[in-house]
Design a protein around this nucleic acid. Sequence first.
DNA 1: CGCCGTCATATTATCGATAAAATGTTTCCT
DNA 2: AGGAAACATTTTATCGATAATATGACGGCG
Lengths: 334, 334
Amino acid sequence: MVRMADVARAAGVSAMTVSNVLNERLPVGEPTRARVMAAVEALGYEVNLTARHLRAGRTDTVAFIVPSFHDYFGEVADKIAPLIEAEGRHLVLERTSGSPEHEMAALSVARLQLYDGVLLSVAGLDRDQLDRVRSSKPIVLLGERDVPDRFNHVRLANEEGARLATAHMIEHGSRRILALGCTFDTAHMMTSDRRIGWERALLDAGLDVDPRYVVPIATYTPAAARDALLDVIASGLPFDGVFAVTDVIALGAVAALAESGLRVPVDVQLAGFDNLDMASFLPPGLTSVDANHEGVAETAVGLLHRQMAGWTGPAEHVVAPVRLVVRGSTRGGA
Amino acid sequence: MVRMADVARAAGVSAMTVSNVLNERLPVGEPTRARVMAAVEALGYEVNLTARHLRAGRTDTVAFIVPSFHDYFGEVADKIAPLIEAEGRHLVLERTSGSPEHEMAALSVARLQLYDGVLLSVAGLDRDQLDRVRSSKPIVLLGERDVPDRFNHVRLANEEGARLATAHMIEHGSRRILALGCTFDTAHMMTSDRRIGWERALLDAGLDVDPRYVVPIATYTPAAARDALLDVIASGLPFDGVFAVTDVIALGAVAALAESGLRVPVDVQLAGFDNLDMASFLPPGLTSVDANHEGVAETAVGLLHRQMAGWTGPAEHVVAPVRLVVRGSTRGGA
DNA sequence: CGCCGTCATATTATCGATAAAATGTTTCCT
DNA sequence: AGGAAACATTTTATCGATAATATGACGGCG
């Protein structure tokens, strides 16, 4: 391991001069700078980032902590990365499996030290647990859970999105719409907020809210969604529309409907949420609620940058607006 | 920031004793241990991982460096994470955009220092560039590029997989099969290795290899794939099968075929590569070459663990076997 | 000619933890 | 009782860089 001191010796200067050359902190005379650079090249020296971090208290790295790496979070992460890199920092992803324990561990003093700032997609933690986090590290929370006021937070207009999607299917003739993957949780969660939007659309249209039409799912995978929907079909419960709580769930629904010979959108209309890349390619095109990933990424990163730059004003709680992207899976589409 | 020295003072012992209690390195008397633990609790002390890293030379962290976070790599990363965590380490993901410069930077001395080991999915680097990497850090390379012998490397049986998929479509009646997303590169690349498999299947069946049937794609997105295939359709080139170089490309093909009123598998058979989760849900089910992500993950992590444990034997070059998963998008499927 | 300011570079102290060696204390055995 | 072994804890040095401060050389000016 080549150290700064080795470079210093080779160039006949002190370590501090090497540091000044490399970091352009204090001015260094041209001949000296040249000698130092030559020594750096000759020895192949590179700074020890750990030592720099310990001494300078800065890592130039931001973490985005997500429940899982694939699908939705992978897409959002790819939007976030360039924004972080534009400010000369690195982005790394960590995974929590959505468990509260892992999420708390990611917010522990020890782990937060490793980054200049952290974006956390909250899946498992509730407000009380988040309140126990004591740290002045810049943090921005993403996701649909309730969070303490002191945290910057970006969430989606879940209820409105679900309402839009459901109302759109009602408008085009659906009367019995499943809320696939929704729940009756009382705490704010993605699955319950979206259920409320679904309910609202039904009530606005003067339709009944039948709890049998809320179909919870064991795990948020297309496989579980397909199985759940196949069960519904087997049970004989009549339906002519499906609001899937996410596009990933909608993917499972597409498979179940196709397997059962139900045509989309003729027999059953289908709408999802998230507008993943996939949505526009899945024939006949998946109608989906779009929350503008890119805008969400910009907002969240903006809040984080502001904190990292030293801003100490009150935290912001942003609700990202949504719009419905209509495609062939509903009768308003092509 | 609470330091170990603060805990030591509170417990009336030396910092070293605190360290010994927390790390269970040297034995500590029970009453002392209790006092130390009480002080740790009272002050809410947590170790400074950066200082530990600097002194102890270990981060307990492994990086998986990928071209992009979504789709294929997100799925593989979710398989790798539990394997790393099972050994008590953390996994972080970094992104290179597939550019050689970013990949080299990720392999720089400075960045490698941050991890106990690195898994790198090579997209842009060639053998010569990789040869310039000088580091004894445990590294395992993934991906289809050629790599120097001294690196552990896991790649897929690309040629065989493409051959299987193509042969399967020939067997079920296709005679003019597009190689969508393939290329004529001479270096080993995913897109050229798979083209060779496609060629082989054609030749084995006594069919012509017509270069017009190799359709390169600007960017590896479903949108670009759809556009490329729509262009082919518009050109009037007749075809009755599509081998898509990846499932992501196949997704674009599905959209293009649906838009053009071509029925899968009746008019055109379609097969992909990677067997992403999506493949089994995309109606009528996407026939795809499965490379057993989980097995690849286990192999790669196994090689990395071996290196991190101090193994210094020769590097291994593993070619992960593939099999064809037949679904409804080809006529052998349901 | 001598004093002061400016610029370039060097010295010192420190970030927080831990490996290795040193010190002190108790126990045990003959 | 004497001495060694066993055990518990502390001391010292170090990982590699950098912020803050100090030193030295030179030029300008009265």
